[in-house]
Design a protein around this nucleic acid. Structure first.
Length: 579
DNA sequence: TACATCACTTAGGACTTCCACC
DNA sequence: GGTGGAAGTCCTAAGTGATGTA
């Protein structure tokens, strides 16, 4: 098909021997045969023991099972900051009251008068007890889990047994959105078999619903990849059970994603020249499109689809930037034409950046902002659909997110070339790899909360480094002594002693270097998450080629799960691979 | 063209397991 | 054997973008 033809003949001949390349369907067909056992439901609610009491206004109150279950969701979270937030409390209380019996409803009218403390303690005790379980009990639990995985964790898709990503239905609880979410605290209701749509092939054994229940629908749609779906009650969106990243269907898609990004590499110069040209366009719409694309390309911003107001946290991407999200400085930090970005992106992660831009971009931004309020759209003539339609015309399969993939992967390749020092040892090379990875994570703004134990663990490491330095001093003195001894005696025994002291010194010096590398790596990584780019943006063939080139084990950069996900790349890439 | 729906990828944090070190 | 902390896994929210519908 068209996609295969885009690839080199060599790639094709290599491919046919891999299982993810066995069959390719046309017309959006994703599989011919699909059989699975359906989802695993959340365990039923176990009512609290009588000794665990709930108090309203200081008085003990026995709750009905339905009301009690929802109360425990709140009680479990008492230590979390969420439960102090007004919106969270308001949403929770409203939904909780819906679950109450009429008499409960008339009594419980103020959340502030509710005392969930005993519930909270009960769950703490439970989790403590779980930790204190005997070896045998833990093993038994592990075996039961394994059994469940074996039974429900796999499916058959086109002659292959494939691992399912999420075969467990999400348990009920209180919705925890990210950032300032208007729906935080709402009750996420329990999913029953009657909510579930099953997708499988007609000629397969259809999964059996739990006793006394039936499925909502059974479908046989081979144009989609999901096995199970249901509609979630918070946003009304659909949730799916799909396959693991190691599966053929996901691996192939992943590979395809990077091939699209590589095609962009071939025409990116032309596209850049084009949007620079468009900065001068007579049409406002074209100018806005060109400036937005420039940001997406230069800063790896996300596309920025419109969002329904009041349904989600207020976050933006490129096309949905508002005037209030940027500041223009004719001069800043000694540089001309600076744009200062400050906005909340996906997952309410802050994007803060000061970037010098070309004069023409700067002038355009001034124009776009003229006579606008802070809360007005910066690109009022643009949205993602307009932008993507334009991109589609520039290259088949090109969308805004391809730029992120392309820029991430090309940055990794460049950085690896630049940072890898052939003379350094494996540990130092891996530090270089992590630094290259980090450059990408910074570009894509992949942040994480600094680990709670960061300062402490850094201190501990420093203590170790100091101790190691003392050891080196000691080893040096011993070597010196041995050398002096040998100078006098000149016999075999003292010669051997010098040798062994030399080796000992070398060993501790190496250990020190390792520790120092570790410290540097950790410090630089404090607020940056490497995993997201590694998993989603970096063509794994670049990393595999690098490993082969420098004779570094793949295991040093990819753990088992990652190796499974990138199996296609591990087999495909040799040391000469170029993104 | 606006809007809704659907399917799929991308994301950070919570939770669990593992392993080096005492 | 116990434990701290890192690594790995799980969870599910929050994006992107295609397509259908009025």
């Amino acid at each position: 098909n068209a996609f295969l033809q885009l690839n080199s003949n060599r790639a094709i001949s290599l491919f046919v021997c891999f299982r993810w390349e066995e069959e390719r369907y046309t017309d959006g067909v994703k599989w011919k045969f699909l059989e699975h056992k359906g989802p695993v439901f959340a365990p039923p609610y176990i009512p609290l023991p009588d000794k665990v009491k709930f108090y309203y206004d200081g008085k003990h109150m026995k709750l009905s099972p339905q009301a009690e279950e929802v109360a425990t969701f709140f009680g479990k979270m008492l230590d979390h900051e969420y439960t102090t937030k007004d919106i969270f409390r308001k949403n929770f209380f409203k939904d909780w009251r819906k679950e109450m019996k009429p008499e409960e409803k008339s009594t419980i009218v103020d959340l502030n008068k509710c005392d969930f403390e005993e519930m909270n303690q009960h769950f703490k005790d439970q989790s403590e007890a779980r930790k204190q379980m005997s070896k045998e009990e833990k093993l038994k639990l592990k075996e039961e889990n394994e059994k469940l995985l074996q039974e429900y964790g796999f499916c058959i898709m086109d002659n292959h047994k494939e691992r399912i990503a999420n075969f467990r239905i999400e348990p009920p609880g209180l919705f925890r959105g990210r950032g300032n979410h208007p729906k935080m605290g709402m009750l996420k209701r329990r999913i029953r078999p009657e909510d579930i749509i099953i997708n499988c092939s007609k000629d397969s054994k259809v999964p059996v619903p739990p006793h006394g229940h039936k499925w909502k629908t059974i479908r046989h749609d081979n144009k989609v990849t999901w096995l199970v779906s249901w509609t979630e009650n918070i946003q009304g969106s659909i949730k799916y059970i799909m396959l693991n990243p190691s599966s053929r269907i996901k691996g192939e898609k992943d590979w395809q994603k990077y091939e699209t990004a590589r095609r962009l590499k071939k025409c990116v110069d032309k596209i850049r020249a084009q949007y620079r040209e468009d900065w001068k366009s007579k049409e406002m719409k074209v100018r806005q499109r060109a400036v937005a694309l420039y940001f997406i390309d230069k800063l790896a911003l996300r596309a920025g689809n419109e969002k329904e107001e009041g349904e989600t946290a207020d976050t933006v991407g490129c096309c949905s930037l508002r005037v209030e999200h940027i500041k223009l400085h004719t001069e800043l930090d000694g540089q001309e034409y600076m744009v200062e970005f400050d906005f909340l992106g996906k997952d309410s992660i802050r994007y803060y950046n000061k970037v010098p831009v070309e004069k023409r971009v700067f002038k355009n931004l001034q124009l776009f902002m003229e006579n606008k309020q802070p809360e007005d759209d910066l690109f009022d003539r643009l949205n993602t659909s307009i932008l993507n339609k334009h991109l589609q015309e520039l290259m088949d399969g090109l969308t805004a997110k391809v730029f992120r993939t392309y820029n991430a992967s090309i940055t990794l390749q460049q950085q690896l070339k630049e940072l890898t020092n052939p003379d350094e040892n494996v540990a130092a090379k891996i530090l270089s790899y992590n630094r290259a990875n980090r450059a990408v994570a910074i570009l894509c703004n992949h942040q994480r909360a600094p680990p709670k134990t960061f300062e402490k663990s850094m201190q501990n490491l420093q203590t170790k480094i100091d101790a190691k330095k003392d050891q080196i001093g000691m080893a040096r003195r011993e070597l010196k002594g041995a050398k002096a001894d040998h100078k006098v005696k000149k016999d075999e025994k003292t010669r051997k002693s010098v040798e062994s002291k030399k080796k000992a010194l070398q060993r501790v010096e190496e250990q020190l270097m390792k520790l120092e590398v570790q410290a540097t790596d950790r410090e630089e990584n404090k607020q940056i998450a490497l995993g997201t780019s590694k998993l989603n943006y970096l063509d794994p063939r670049i990393s595999i080629a690098w490993c082969k080139k420098w004779d570094i084990q793949t295991e040093k950069i990819y753990n088992k799960t990652q190796r499974e996900k990138f199996a296609w790349a591990i087999d495909m890439a040799d040391e000469d691979y170029e993104f």
